[in-house]
């Protein structure tokens, strides 16, 4: 997952040196080719990265749909996972949870539940079904496991919204996504500070690039990264198209 997300980091500065020695004109042609075939190339590459892909087939096939509706369903899918995760965290708190931690995690649960229900209502009859999460790999009794998973979900949510923004055609939807992504980033910051208090991790060098930017990751990569946490097989090939 880390490697996957890291490799989508697309605004580094160290490129100048290589770029200068590449024949720009010819390369642009290749790059254009890569872009047009990006989905195929990336998904093929991702398969290699995931020797343990969640065997699809245990759950339902869910197609997020196309265009802006596809993007909203994509957000709805991610919010469903986050809401289910934090609902479980609060229902079965980890050993030694402090009052302050419980308050923070309860707030986050409420935000995610609100996001989920908001998308469901906004999508109406175009909404995908309720997904069936699979958190079997998360040990909810352990603080490290819970906060580690929370960090992963929040960072992934931020990268997902950042990558989905440009797929939206409607300015109103874009603004809504913007209103939500900064809240996800606030969550990520707070969770990271719970894990490693008073460190640089709240906006750590492990997640930001050399331009001080968060990640922006395409739906195909995000869906590949989270598919272990959901039993349904989610297809997002036409999201934003």
């Amino acid at each position: 997952m880390n490697r996957l997300v890291k490799s989508k980091n697309n605004s580094g500065k160290e490129d100048g040196e290589i770029t200068s020695v590449v024949n720009r004109r010819l390369f642009l042609r290749s790059a254009g080719l890569a872009t047009s075939l990006g989905t195929i190339v990336i998904s093929a590459a991702c398969n290699d990265d995931d020797p343990d892909p969640m065997i699809p087939g245990t759950g339902d096939a869910v197609d997020l749909g196309s265009g802006d509706i596809g993007v909203l369903n994509y957000a709805y899918a991610l919010e469903q996972l986050e809401a289910a995760f934090y609902t479980q965290v609060i229902a079965t708190p980890y050993a030694g949870i402090t009052d302050a931690e419980r308050a923070i995690l309860t707030d986050i649960r409420d935000h995610e539940v609100i996001h989920r229900d908001f998308f469901k209502a906004a999508l109406g009859d175009k909404a995908i079904k309720g997904l069936t999460p699979n958190f079997a790999t998360i040990d909810f009794t352990k603080r490290d496991a819970v906060l580690g998973a929370a960090k992963l979900f929040e960072d992934t949510g931020v990268a997902a919204y950042n990558g989905a923004g440009k797929l939206l055609k409607d300015g109103g939807y874009l603004l809504l996504a913007g209103k939500i992504v900064s809240v996800e980033a606030r969550h990520a910051s707070v969770i990271r500070d719970l894990i490693n208090p008073k460190s640089a991790d709240f906006a750590g060098d492990d997640i930001l690039d050399a331009n001080g930017m968060d990640k922006a990751v395409a739906p195909a990569d995000i869906l590949a990264a989270v598919k272990g946490y959901v039993t349904d097989s989610i297809t997002g090939a036409n999201v934003g198209k």
Binding site: G165, L174, R186, A188, S189, A216
Partner: peptide, 26 residues
């Protein structure tokens, strides 16, 4: 964000900075 709808790559950069400001803010 809305003013950048026609400039998708710049929109994406702006979003990537926006969420970092939110991390700082929190």
């Amino acid at each position: 964000a809305g003013a950048l709808l026609a400039d998708p790559q710049i929109l994406e950069y702006a979003l990537q900075v926006h969420s970092v400001e939110a991390r700082h803010a929190a």
